[in-house]
Amino acid sequence: MAELHIVGTLIGASQFPASELCCEDWKLLEGFESAQTQVDIPAEDSNITLWDHPIDVHYSTNSIEGWPKMQFQVYHQDSFGRNELYGYGVCYVPTIPGTHEIDCVTWRPVGSFTDQLWSFFLNATPQLKNLDIIHNPTDRYQLTTESMGKIHLEITVICRNFQNYGVCLSTKQ
């Protein structure tokens, strides 16, 4: 079986409307690793939140299908300590060995007019009941969303034994 190491950092996020953010429960679908970052309150006049959260996972696979992907949930914490959903995002781990800089775009669901009114005054945005929709393309068309900011990642991928099973991961092989 082939092995895969994913090492890297969750650097931060940018272009969100308000920037006190924490990133919760990012998940690797093929593993059981999940973690939550700290809440970052950036300096004034800067639109970038920094987490610098480490990522280090190791997998062994017997097929290429179901390559690991990362799933993000971004929350905003206001001055009253209320947590508000600010975005969902998914991104694939690159298959090419080496270091990659990845920008993961995020979105959040928008409900009906009353939901929007509710969220405006109470900071309670609608959330997904089933988180599978984040990485499942089939039932997405029923959803209306709003685009939010980006999450920045730096990931190093190390692959082992894939070439023994006839898998080309880089142009050199």
Partner: peptide
Amino acid sequence: AISQRCKPLYNELSGCLEANFGFPLE
């Protein structure tokens, strides 16, 4: 496959409207 409907927002850095989908393709 059809993606979700997404509301585009104005991005100051690029100076254009952007709609984030994050729609997986496997």
